[in-house]
Design a protein around this nucleic acid. Sequence first.
RNA 1: GGACGCGUGGCCUAGCCAGGAUAGGGCGAGAGGUUCCUAACCUCUAGAUCGCGGGUUCAAAUCCCGUCGCGUCCGCCA
Length: 580
Amino acid sequence: MLLAMRSEVENAFEQVCSQLDLQMDDFGLEEPPEEIEAILASNIAYRMQKEMEKSPVEIADLIVELLNSKVFKYISRVYSEGPYINFVPSERYFSETLEKAQEDDYGQLERKGETVIVEHTSANPTGPVHVGRARNPIIGDSISRILAFAGYHVEKQYYVNDSGKQVATLIWAFEKFDEGELTELKKNRGDYDIVRYYQRGNSYLEASSVEERKKSEVEIAHILEQIESGDVEVYKKLVSITDTILGGMKDCLNRISVEFDEFVRETMFIRDGSVDEMVERLKELDGAFEEDGAWKLRMRNEEKPLVFLRSDGTSLYTTRDLCYHEWKLNKADHIVTILGEDHKFQAGQLINTLSMLGMETNRIRQVFYSWVNLPEGGMSTRKGTGINLDDLLDESINRAAHEVTRREKSRIRKVELTEYDVNRIARQVGVGAIRCGIVATQPGKGITFSWEDALSFERQGGPYMQYVHARCCGILTNQKFDIKDIDSSLLNSKEELDLLHEISRLPFVISSAADALEPHRIITYSQRLSEKFNVFYRECPVLKGANPEVISARLALVAATKNAISNSLYLVGIESPDSM
RNA sequence: GGACGCGUGGCCUAGCCAGGAUAGGGCGAGAGGUUCCUAACCUCUAGAUCGCGGGUUCAAAUCCCGUCGCGUCCGCCA
């Protein structure tokens, strides 16, 4: 509803500007401070100062006068306060918000008829997902959900790097070593099984003599050439090994509600000839040149050239990624890729090259995030240093289970929780806390992992917001009301109006989070909504309201809150428990 | 050395891109609150020269320049 109000104000400002014969592209719309009755404000008076040659206060008064001659649907009053122009929402603004928020899909925006491919995670299929890269699926999945809610058709893709040196190394190690030479199996799942070969292979390479290493490297290079030339036997092994690992990774990611529509294999572009064709096209470009048998491409920004063909004739990661991006550009209107900040350089070269090939790189957006590091440094699958996401989840769920039982005892009002409920709540809360903890922070900020931070159920965290949903459900159980009979003007206390106002902001928040590709805005919103609800909850007893009409109106408000909070949480992949 | 990102009370964090009304939260500290719909809650108090120095502007946490600290990258790796 805030979206509607904003566009109403924008239209009015456009008219006012043309009346005054002024050209303004920014009306300075902002959110006023909390204690003000208005929910939307404009500082346009400052912006008109020069042209009007009047003080901002005078301009504000003049504009208010002009605005007051207009008829608004969602605004009851326009007034100036100093240089600011404030807009007070109308009764209709609130009643329509209350009505719209009764829908399960409240916040869902109109279909845009455009497709977005969101590529995220795309971790090398060499071992279990560790916490260092866990931001990727969490950010990527949240962005996917937000874009879908904002009206795009979204396709979630995992790009499988099943070619290149690390996979060749993996295949080599899998052939070379036997079970007896490996570390103990930590978890009976494909990714945990096969990563042992990868780690064994890498430690072997590190520890071996120069001569031994050279020999091994020749063997690995040979496997790589076989992959590139489309050798059927090697390809079969490659698919079998990477599928086994991917199966495990999928299981792990499913635990945090991350799923994909498609897994796109790098080798697909090798096998269908796209890579060879791409190499030929790149060679034709102006900046392409051969050096020491390898092919390179000069970048427009004069940074280091892109090497797109090794001297042994095999392709490189970026060469294949070019094919993948062209393929995506042909399939979708927009492309979003979630990448670790260590990929910035490569991603820049990729965009440069795509544009040199004449592709519409403005349809591509990249989201970068910093790694989650250990206090002593980065996490690495190859070296086997790092916290596995599975272990973090296990620990978080255990901790949540402990909290459920602990809090159950200290409560005044007892809720009957079965063992099934306790397990369910522990899982929802434990996973929610992790997803929330990771998505709440701006992706650009670095995170140093600590068990204490990762497992803390802080007030501003997931459980706090999930608790709001549980409270709503508790109130609504066995209660009936018909939204058509509700008189929303009965919701007139500050607490009720604040809450309703917050609910009205959801579509706007979703729209801006989608535009900015910033899921943490949803968390910020959910925290505010939760806080408003808890104040309302304390101050306005619902089921003990003054009369049946008030009770019904408040029930509708609770139902609206329930939809708003559960949809907000859904957008960042957090489940909404019916009880806690 | 160059490029990019980050720097907000003891700790974590929103706001920065599109500059405007006393910098919003949380943790931790202190004080209160439950005969009442789940206290994983609410209320109050203390605590910030928004890394530092310049500049632009009527107005700077926000934009520009410089500087310091931390991180990442600058591979015929991915």
